[in-house]
Design a protein around this nucleic acid. Structure first.
Lengths: 226, 226
DNA sequence: GTCGCTTGTCACAGAAAGGTCACGAGCCGG
DNA sequence: CCGGCTCGTGACCTTTCTGTGACAAGCGAC
């Protein structure tokens, strides 16, 4: 779960923002002045700082600069009012990553937050091809072939299968799948998982009722082997 | 490590940019006027040139043209202000690879830089022509012909199609398109993407409702094949 | 073997995503 | 100022996906 620090002195905006972000399943911390903002912003577990420019004690500009000088590279999104817009060249010189001018729409802010966080997660070692048995998978193309014949998989089926493959040999619990594939926003029954396993088996196994690849580990979960 | 040359006369933006890019682990060199920009940009070890259009001594347009005439094919990203917006297309005709209009956010710039460098790495030779089915595209001239007949594409349609082609075979999500084609400055609905796909299909497909080239990948995005 | 719990299986309804069209806003050239 | 072009959005309909309940089958402990 991503953690966002909101540094804003106006209580109404601060709590409003905090609530809105919490509703979007972010972890939210707040600070009402620049100094505590700078302090809290130095923590390593913060994924994004939303920073008002006009702040008591220490203004946003200073906070920004201070953080960067400390070598903190946490993304910073600046909230500025129209007046300040022209003076600061978009916080570029301050080391901010993005800016939104007040009054802003919540929708826009959320979109930008998403964009920033999306950029953060590095595209490290992802598999995009995998083969086993008579099945070949291409995650990038969203394609699966079995004995050379194309088989259609649902997006969710793809994700489940991919997760299983990424943990091949290990027992994967239903809870793990629900957390990682379904995410925090959805809370389906654990039976839902079973059903997806079922339909995946139908597509990858020669004898779905006697599976060779996705094995059931009774009272624990499932295991992918090949 | 990639080397980026920043050609910009405004000191605040220049140093701000330089620092930000350094933070992103790029090697950065700077130039404050067109002439030195052109000089430094001729070096072979430069991977990308970020070029302001309004420059003393020699403007960005001239720098761009001069470099291309010298046979330098280093990617160029143009910074232009709103006023010069009409020169957008011109910029691309000059041989620039992309442009960002001021005021821009660091986030957007970074995204575009990444995109350009990724493209660069992928296929040393940039595509500027592409043909499939009975369609022929000329990216440089922004022209498309179908069965020898000219078909008009809007700028945005062109970009979408180009992006799809650059990722042919792979699934392209709406988010990817919004990020890379629309940029971070606009936040249209994802439905907007659908509509563009629709209109592109009408222009390239024989049976738009049963597309052969731009396929829908349900809950994932679209895929270009040919 | 029997009981209790877990998993396999199927069918279905509601939800979500995509296709399509039409409209209003903004921009530009005349 | 008008008409035409883009662009983004909303509305409506169709298709596809998703999650769930019900029941059968399987497993494990006793």
């Amino acid at each position: 779960m991503k953690k966002i620090l909101v540094v804003e002195d106006d209580a109404a905006i601060r709590t409003g923002l905090a609530e809105a972000l919490a509703r979007e399943h972010y972890l939210v911390d707040t600070a009402s002045d620049g100094e505590t903002g700078s302090l809290k912003g130095s923590a390593k577990d913060v994924d994004l700082i939303i920073l008002d420019l006009m702040l008591p004690v220490m203004n946003g500009e200073e906070v920004c600069r201070a953080l960067r000088e400390k070598g903190i590279s946490t993304p910073i999104l600046i909230l500025s009012s129209k007046r300040e817009e022209t003076s600061k060249v978009l916080g570029l010189e301050l080391g901010a990553d993005d800016y939104v001018t007040k009054p802003f729409s919540l929708l826009e802010l959320q979109a930008r937050i998403k964009a920033i966080l999306r950029r953060q997660k590095k595209s490290g070692d992802k598999i995009d091809e995998f083969a086993f048995g008579n099945v070949k998978l291409d995650f990038k193309k969203h394609e699966m072939t079995r004995r050379g014949k194309q088989v259609k998989l649902t997006e969710r089926e793809f994700k489940v299968l991919k997760y299983m493959i990424e943990h091949k040999g290990e027992v994967v619990t239903r809870e793990m799948l629900l957390d990682e594939v379904w995410g925090y926003e959805n809370f389906p029954t654990t039976r839902t998982v079973d059903n997806y396993i079922l339909s995946i088996r139908h597509k990858i196994e020669d004898a779905p009722s006697r599976p060779k690849f996705i094995l059931t580990v009774h009272t624990a979960g499932y295991k992918f082997t090949c």
